[in-house]
Structure formats: structure tokens, C-alpha cells
Nucleic acid binder design. Structure first.
Length: 959
RNA sequence: GCCGGGAUGGAGGAAUCGGCAGACUCGGAUGCCUCAAAAGCAUCUGCCCGAGAGGGCGUGCGGGUUCAAGUCCCGCUCCCGGCACCA
């Protein structure tokens, strides 16, 4: 720790020291809290305040990605974004807007539960203690949050509405014709009234209760499905696709993950694939993040094509067809074989009793019958984790099923294989293989010696294998079937073949998504219980709204049953299932008291973060999750502006790390759209503008054994790093307890004060860029605040050093230039350059014998977003009674921004050889002749060939 | 492999529209103050040659466009992030 701020014996009594900063900061934090300075008035409800200075003003909703309150507390990296939004919000408030800025806690989740498992302490106890600690740490930073609006996802008052939203989703279906979700009751009414046919055409009245329920449940946006899920034995729970890393391990804990068929709650996010994709265009988000979402949704257009199966297998009727999805229907003439995913449902029915005559040995996997071969291959594929698949080279494996299909365009008999390079979960789980135009198919064809027919002419000189580029179609005609693609480019050929497929009943154009439905249940304790019970038939029944909340019951053992991380055959067991007295419940759901069984899964951690931004708007509302008028005011779409493009609504700024690019941001958009469709919110998107802050990173040091040593004690010398006399190795990365390189905001506040810490974090670089933490550099911001203080307050006497005499011309011009620049920087979230300008202005003042009030006051106001405490203190000392939180941010006088003279650098052949000062309104000819005179020696009598005068910028002479 | 982002002094960064590269800060050097130190303040600080005046070089590398390129174009290298057999 540095002693920079330790008050020495002969430090001037009124110097801005850490001790003084501490006193000022705590005093102002108390004042703000006591006076409710940062309460933002709602249009209606208990938080309305018509007398507020910003009531009815133009609104601005600034949002941070709320934290998970970890037991380790904050390090200096965590508040970077929070300080950024605070500076922005404080500026906007001074600029006249009604600013909503609040902070809550994403408090359900694994770490508290794991800690509870280890210690036996209830997760609520540890979580609430952690929240209290976070609140204290954040308060110490002087963040101007409306504390009345702080919520935590674990609050019963909060999660009752999470459950309520779940019910809305459960009780809704996606009407693809209308392109939106509608209440499930409307679907039932359509079935009942006959305006919508049932799947098998029977009338609604003919169906049994169970049949009706099945049909309805199959439409719901939240549904139970028995489907392949990511089972993680080491965590004892299943995970969403998004929670599994590329190498097949859990994002949390890094345990192996296995594909298992298990009954789980799913959310039909795929229904929203198109809208989640299209509406990205309406958002003011960083392009890379939009791109990541686009890739994740993975929309591809192509066609479904039906390949009739040659009836070799015992159970296949003559008319059976295998439907494939392809993005290249134009290449169908080159389809020389087919591949099904090993899990494909038709496989069993296809497999004949014996290998067809002439089957090559290489296709059989050495098995005597197709059935044995398929069994063996499936078993081998299922036993592999994704890690193992990854580790293996991409050598293609597979086995012949013994069956053949007919290529619908030319009647060719093509063999059907199963192979794990075809994924069960994508498209139809089956492909037509076109080796000539697909690299994977080419590889497989090489291994199994399958024919390769080019159907797109590769360009001259192409010496690769598969050719995936554009070119004229070849070998692609079936004149007797009225089909000829030859000579067409890829796009035209696609259009022609789709037309033909549709006309001849062989297929149709289609769109497929990489996005899968969202696995929504977790076999854990510390999460929101589902508002669902099961009746004696096992049907899932939603509890009525009046029965909310379903409170999380107390249990003795918080842990789900966990297993050896590699135990793929284990089965989940939830903590809640052990509370039989809670699980078994008697309820009257309209047809008299009956016995029901509660759902014992809980919701994933993402649930609360899918809608918390809405609860900030109306946190005390007990009638609705958010009042419609309050939602419309804070988040509703803005009137269509000059662009003519309708606004999507949502928060005006959302700041957080890029690690949530697809998880949280996609889920939250999905929920918001459901709520929009059902008429519960007026905004189409939750987060209009997104800003990804960078990370504060840190150096860590290891000794010869590779053990981390305390970074604080390492010294740099002679180009190396030393702990005492021992040389240590430097690494760069995260800040963390185990890396022994944590620096906390508490330490920084103690050594310099919160204002210095804030200024340092905002000045060290652009908010969106990651950068290394350097404690020794913090002193620069401290000196800056000391200089500001000294410009206003005499360090020896404490008296004001401010004069009412007007500022000199140069200082005044500097002030207005800075005001103009700082305003621009604040709007553009360029706080580092805004602070640099304030430092320049301050450094300009230190040369003066005393400080003109006309400069001191705007300087203090402009400093306020970054260093609010010291700014408030100076503002008061300058004679203002009220807080500056609502004071007008300075405005530049345009007249003072225009310079009277301009200094032109004069280049000769690209090099600056002189400069001339001319009146700002000098004519171009005057500038030219003055410039030529200034560089006459450099020209040495040569006649310039060309002279370029860039008005206000420079003169360039070509000699 | 594919997609995205980046590379500027010893360090973090600035240059917002193709117009003086290096604002501002740290670090370093020298000085003031001091018995001394700390703190604070002042001056200097891209690299090379030169006593100096001055000159040359310089934004990852190689080319190009332009009176003028950190910025635009073409071809690379390295670093960071995402996805990864998605038909």
C-alpha cells in the first residue's frame, strides 16, 4: 500500500488529503441519502413526485448489468462500468434529463449454494450478507443510484413476478400466422370453435381430455420435453447449450457434460428466431455483439428435400421418405449418398436383416449384419463425450445401414450411412451428401470410397477438393423430368430447383436455425421454484396467479445429488424432491381439493436477469410487475423521428461485459418480446443501446515453482521482476484471490479517496477498452484533484482563492473550448479525454495568482460527474446552498470558440518547414502568400509547382 | 479452420472528417523547497546523429493511392475474443 496520502507533520492544514477526502465523501454521501438527492420521479404510483425538479422532463434510463454478489467482494475491476454509468447519468441529470439509475443483485446461483453445501449455512444468509457488503462498497464510491429501486432476484417480492412471467409464457403459444405469441386460451377457443383444425383432423369434442391437453401443451412457449440435454454429473444438474463450452465442459466448474435424454422444462425461444435476428437491426449495439447473436441464432435458408427409401428394411413401407435439410438444393444431382445422425428415428426401421449383395467390407465396420453394425456404431458414438470427439482428428467415421434411397431428381439409388458428423439436433438430423461441393462430405466419401460428381464447374486452375464457391451448374439435368439446371449460377439454380421440388412434391424451400430451445430447469436448490404442480396423470398444471409466490422451502441438504464427474449414466436428483411434505400438496384448483405434486426443479440463474430492468421502474408495485404508464415513460418507444424508422424502445444505455453477448442478452430479449406480444410492455426490445465496457486486468507473479506470490511486494528492476532478491515471472490476466494480485476499491478509497479512484478509473483509457491496473499511477488523479482544490481553496488558511474579477481572454477562451469539448466527450462516453481536458484547464489555472469565479464554477460543475464529492464541497464553498446534482451543466459561448488568429503549419513536400499566424478571416490568397514567404528559405528560390491551402488547417507546398 | 477486434514512446493512452503524430497521466531526469526526507511545485523527457544550431528516422511488417496516410487500398505477421463437423 502506498503512503502517498498519509498526512505528514507539515502538510498544509487545508490540503486535499485522503483524510479530508474521506471526511468530505462520507458527509456528502449522508447528505445525498438523507435528502434523497438521486430519487427519480415516476409518472405515477408511489414513486411519483410532481414537485421534483425533473418531474416530466425528458427521461433517460441508464442501466448496469447487475452483479452476482460474490463472497470475495469487489475488486477494482468490478466497478469500472458502474462508475462509467454514474458519470454518464450525473452528466445527463445536470444536462436536464430525468435520469433513472439503480442497482440490484442477481443473487440466485451456484456459488452461494456450493458454499452452503460446504458450510451448512443457508444460501440466503450468505447471499444477503454479501449483498450488504456490496451495497456498502458501492455506496463508498458515491454512485448516484436511486436506492429505493434496488431489488434482488432472491426477494420474494421479486421472484413472485419472475414466477408470474413464467406463467405468462407457459400460458402462451406462438401463432406463426400472426407472427407473435398469443394467450393459450385463444388457441383453445380456436380448436373448440373449429376455426383451427386439430393435428389429426378430428373435432375438438371428439378428443379425450388427455388428448386435448397434449395438443395444447405441445403449443406452449414453456413446455416439458424428453429430449437430449446436457447432463453434468459433477454439478448434478443439466445445463443450457449456452452454458456448455466448446470443448464439452460446464462453464461453471469445468466438469464433463454428457448428452442424455431427460425430461426437462424448455422454453420455445426458437419460435422467436426470426424476430430476435431481424430486430438486431433496430438496436444500437456494438456490431461484434450483434454478429455473435446472429451466428448463435444461425439462420440458414435452403430447402427440405424428400428422398424415398428403397423398401429394404422390414418396417419401412414403400412410401417412406427421408427428409433432409440443405442450403445447397442446387447440388442435388451430386448427392451420391445420404447420412443420418446415429440417433435418427428412422434408422431402426431402415436397417435390413442382411447386408445387400455386393456391400463393400469397408462399409460394414466388420460386422456380420447391418443391425450389429448400427448397434455398435451407436454405442461407440454415445459413449464419447464432446471432449473426446474434439480430441480425435476429424477423420470421418460411420457405417452403412444396408438401406438405399432414391435421389428424386435422377432416380439414382444411393446408399444410406449413419455417421456422427451429422448432428441429430440440427435440421432434420439427416443430410444428402454432396462430396463435390461440401468438404465434410468429400472427406467422408474419400474414407468410404463413394462416388464424387461435380455439379458446379470450379474455376480454371482450381486444384482443391470440394468446391463450395459460385459457378455454372454442370451434370445437373433430367430432361425427362423437366429439370435442367446446367449453366445456371448457384443462386438461380437454387431458385429453379426449389420451384421444381415444390411443383413435383419432392420438397420445399425452408429455413433452419442453429438456435435450439432453451433448457430452463435446473436440479438445484438456490433458484426460483416453478409455479407448477402435477396431477395424478402426470400432467403439468400452472398454479393460478393468486397462489403466487411459491416460496422456496427450507431444506436440510442444499445440494443436488452429485456424481463422479465422468459418471455419464447417473440421474439427476433435486434437493427439493427430498421435502416430501412440500412436494405433496392438497390444492383446490377449481375442481375441489385434490392431491398434487410440486415441480421440484428450479429456474436457471438467467431467469431473474431476464426482466429485472423492468422492476427497477416500479419496484414497490404489488399489483403488477410494472405499471404500464411507468414502463411506457421509461422504456417505451420514442416517437418516430426523421429517420422514419420506428423506435424499439428499451433502456437508453446498458453497460456490461461482452461475456453476456449471447446468454443473458438473448434470453432477456426473448422474454421481453413475449411480454410485448402479450401486451404487458410497450417496448419491443429491452436494451436499446448496449455498451461493452472493457476489463481491468492485472499482472500476477509466479516464483520458480510456479506458485503465485503477492503482486504487491514485487519490484521491477533491471528489466526483471523481483520479490526480495528472488526473480519472479510476470503473467497478465485477471485479478483474483488465487492469483494474489487483488486490489480493492476499499484500499484505494483509504489511500486516496473515492473521487480519486473514480477519476483514475475513468481517465486510464476509453471505457470499452481493457487495460492493466497500475496502483502507482493513481497518484496522478490525486494530484489533479489537489490542484483543483488548490485553485479554489487556500491550503494554508482554508479561505477561498476565487476572485470575482473577469478572467483574462486566453483563460476564458480555454474555458469555453474545454466546455465544448467536455460536453461532446460526455455525450460520446469518452470520459478519458473529457478528464484530460479538465486537467488542461486546471493546469491553466495554477499559473494564475487567483482563480476567476467565472472559471472556477464551471470547472467544478464539469468535474462533478467524475469526482462528485469534492465538487459538491467546492460548490458549497463557492457559496451555493443546494447540491449541484441538478445544477445546469456549463454551456460554451459559441462566440468564444472562434479563434481570432490561426497558426498554419506550412509543409514543403510533405515536411513542416515553417508556420505563419494570420487573422482567422484572412483570404486564401493572403494565407498563401504569407505561407510562401515563411518557407522561402526552404524553397531556395524554386518556383512552387502547387500550393494547397486547407482552410483553418494547414498549407502544403509542392516544390 | 471460420468470424470478429486489435497492434502508436519505457507504461496506460490522444489524434472525433485523409491535414502539425505522441494531448493527458504514470514512470524517468534535473531543479526549487528542506538540516534531511516525504509531500508539493517547476523544467525536460519518441528514437538516432550532432557540442550546438540543426538534420534524419518514426504509429506491427511489405507494397500502393495522395500535395499530405496512425487514418484509405492490397498482401502478410503477431496478440485477444467468439464459434467450431450447423448440411
Amino acid at each position: 500500500m502506498t503512503e502517498a496520502a498519509a498526512p505528514g507533520n507539515d502538510i498544509p492544514p487545508f490540503r486535499y488529503t485522503a483524510a479530508l477526502a474521506d471526511e468530505i465523501e462520507r458527509r456528502w454521501q449522508d447528505i445525498w441519502e438523507r435528502e434523497g438527492t438521486f430519487h427519480a420521479p415516476n409518472p405515477t404510483g408511489p414513486l411519483a413526485d410532481p414537485g421534483h425538479p425533473r418531474a416530466g422532463a425528458e427521461k433517460l434510463y441508464v442501466l448496469d448489468m447487475f452483479p452476482y454478489p460474490s463472497g470475495a467482494g469487489l475488486h477494482v475491476g468490478h466497478p469500472l462500468g458502474y462508475i462509467g454509468t454514474d458519470c454518464f447519468a450525473r452528466y445527463q441529470r445536470m444536462a436536464g434529463r430525468n435520469v433513472l439509475h439503480a442497482m440490484g443483485f442477481d443473487a440466485f446461483g451456484l456459488p452461494a449454494e456450493q458454499y452452503a453445501v460446504q458450510t451448512g449455512t443457508h444460501p440466503r444468509i450468505t447471499t444477503e450478507a454479501n449483498i450488504a457488503r456490496y451495497r456498502a462498497q458501492l455506496r463508498r464510491l458515491g454512485l448516484a443510484h436511486d436506492e429505493r429501486r434496488s431489488v434482488a432476484t432472491i426477494d420474494v417480492d421479486f421472484y413472485r413476478w419472475t414466477q408470474w412471467i413464467f406463467l405468462q409464457i407457459f400460458n402462451a403459444w406462438y401463432d406463426t400466422d400472426a407472427g407473435r405469441a398469443r394467450p393459450i386460451a385463444e388457441l383453445i377457443a380456436e380448436f373448440q370453435g373449429g376455426s383451427r383444425p386439430t393435428p389429426d383432423g378430428r373435432s375438438w369434442a371428439e378428443l379425450s381430455v388427455a388428448e386435448r391437453r397434449k395438443i395444447v401443451d405441445d403449443h406452449r412457449l414453456a413446455y416439458v420435453s424428453e429430449a437430449p440435454v446436457n447432463w453434468c454429473p459433477g454439478l448434478g444438474t443439466v445445463l443450457a447449450n449456452e452454458e456448455v463450452t466448446a470443448d464439452g465442459r460446464s462453464e461453471r466448474g469445468n466438469f464433463p457434460v454428457f448428452k442424455r435424454n431427460l425430461k426437462q422444462w424448455m422454453m420455445r425461444i426458437t419460435a422467436y428466431g426470426d424476430r430476435l435476428l431481424e430486430d438486431l437491426d433496430k438496436l444500437d449495439w456494438p456490431e461484434p455483439i450483434k454478429l455473435m447473436q446472429r451466428n448463435w441464432i444461425g439462420r440458414s435458408t435452403g430447402a427440405h428435400i424428400g428422398f424415398p427409401v428403397s423398401a429394404t428394411g422390414p418396417a419401412v413401407a414403400g412410401e417412406a421418405r427421408i427428409s433432409v435439410f440443405t442450403t445447397r438444393p442446387d447440388t442435388v444431382f451430386g448427392a451420391t449418398y445420404m447420412v443420418l445422425a446415429p440417433e435418427h428415428e428412422l434408422v431402426d426401421a431402415l436397417v435390413p436383416a442382411a447386408w445387400p449383395a455386393g456391400t463393400r467390407d469397408a462399409w460394414t465396420g466388420g460386422h456380420a449384419s447391418p443391425r450389429a453394425a448400427v448397434e455398435a456404431y451407436r454405442k461407440a458414438a454415445a459413449a464419447k463425450t464432446d471432449v473426446e470427439r474434439q480430441a480425435e482428428t476429424r477423420e470421418k467415421t460411420g457405417v452403412f445401414t444396408g438401406a438405399y434411397a432414391t435421389n428424386p431428381v435422377n432416380g439414382a439409388q444411393i446408399p444410406i450411412f449413419i455417421a456422427d458428423y451429422v448432428l441429430a439436433g440440427y435440421g432434420t438430423g439427416a443430410i444428402m451428401a454432396v462430396p463435390a461441393q461440401d468438404e465434410r462430405d468429400w472427406d467422408f466419401a474419400e474414407v468410404f470410397e463413394l462416388p464424387i460428381v461435380r455439379t458446379v464447374q470450379p474455376p480454371e486452375g482450381f486444384d482443391g477438393k470440394a468446391y463450395t464457391g459460385d459457378g455454372p451448374a454442370i451434370n445437373s439435368a433430367a430432361p425427362d423430368r423437366g429439370l435442367d439446371l446446367n449453366g445456371l449460377g448457384v443462386a438461380e439454380a437454387k431458385a429453379r430447383i426449389i420451384e421444381w421440388l415444390e411443383a413435383n412434391g419432392h420438397g420445399a424451400g425452408a429455413v433452419t436455425y442453429r438456435l435450439r430451445d432453451w433448457l430452463f430447469s435446473r436440479q438445484r436448490y438456490w433458484g426460483e421454484p416453478f409455479p407448477i404442480v402435477y396431477d395424478e396423470t402426470g400432467a403439468a398444471i400452472a398454479l393460478p396467479e393468486e397462489m403466487l409466490p411459491v416460496e422456496l422451502p427450507e431444506v436440510d441438504d442444499f445440494s443436488p445429488k452429485t456424481f463422479e464427474p465422468d459418471d455419464a449414466d447417473s440421474n439427476p436428483e433435486t434437493p427439493l424432491s427430498r421435502r416430501r411434505d412440500w412436494v405433496e400438496v392438497e390444492l383446490d384448483l377449481g375442481d375441489g381439493p385434490k392431491r398434487y405434486t410440486r415441480e421440484t426443479n428450479v429456474m436457471p440463474q438467467w431467469a431473474g436477469s431476464c426482466w429485472y430492468e423492468l422492476r427497477y421502474l416500479d419496484p414497490t408495485n404489488s399489483q403488477r410487475f410494472v405499471d404500464a404508464e411507468n414502463e411506457r415513460y421509461w422504456m417505451g418507444p420514442r416517437p418516430t423521428g426523421d429517420s422514419g424508422r420506428p423506435d424499439c424502445g428499451g433502456t437508453d444505455l446498458y453497460v456490461g461485459g461482452a461475456e453476456h453477448a449471447v446468454l443473458h442478452l438473448l434470453y432477456a430479449r426473448f422474454w421481453h418480446k413475449v411480454l410485448y406480444d402479450l401486451g404487458h410492455v410497450s417496448s419491443v426490445e429491452p436494451f436499446r443501446r448496449l455498451f461493452n465496457q472493457g476489463y481491468i486486468q492485472a499482472y500476477a507473479y509466479t516464483d520458480a515453482r510456479g506458485a503465485y506470490v503477492s503482486a504487491e511486494e514485487v519490484i521491477e528492476r533491471d528489466g526483471g521482476f523481483y520479490l526480495g532478491d528472488t526473480k519472479v515471472n510476470r503473467e497478465y490476466g485477471k485479478m483474483g484471490k488465487s492469483l494474489k494480485n487483488v486490489v480493492t476499491p476499499d484500499e484505494m478509497c483509504a489511500a486516496y479517496g473515492a473521487d480519486t479512484f473514480r477519476v483514475y478509473e475513468m481517465s486510464m483509457g476509453p471505457l470499452e477498452v481493457s487495460r492493466p491496473w497500475e496502483t502507482r499511477a493513481v497518484v496522478g488523479s490525486y494530484r489533479f484533484l489537489q490542484r483543483v482544490w488548490r485553485a479554489v481553496v487556500d491550503e494554508e488558511t482554508g479561505a477561498l482563492r476565487v476572485t470575482d474579477a473577469p478572467a483574462d481572454e486566453a483563460t476564458r477562451r480555454l474555458l469555453h473550448k474545454v466546455i465544448d469539448g467536455v460536453r461532446g466527450d460526455m455525450e460520446g462516453i469518452r470520459f478519458n479525454t473529457a478528464i484530460a481536458k479538465l486537467i488542461e484547464l486546471t493546469n491553466g489555472l495554477t499559473r494564475l495568482p487567483d482563480t476567476p469565479r467565472e472559471v472556477a464554477e464551471p470547472l467544478v460543475l464539469m468535474l462533478a460527474p467524475f469526482a462528485p464529492h469534492v465538487a459538491e464541497e467546492l460548490w458549497r464553498r463557492l457559496g451555493h446552498e443546494a447540491s449541484l446534482a441538478y445544477a445546469d451543466f456549463p454551456t460554451a459561448d459559441p462566440a468564444l470558440l472562434v479563434a481570432t488568429t490561426v497558426t498554419y503549419p506550412v509543409q514543403v513536400n510533405g515536411k513542416v518547414r515553417g508556420r505563419v499566424e494570420v487573422p482567422a478571416d484572412a483570404s486564401e490568397d493572403d494565407v498563401r502568400s504569407a505561407a510562401l514567404a515563411a518557407v522561402a528559405p526552404a524553397l531556395a528560390g524554386r518556383e512552387p509547382r502547387k500550393v494547397i491551402v486547407v482552410a483553418g488547417r494547414m498549407v502544403s507546398v509542392v516544390a
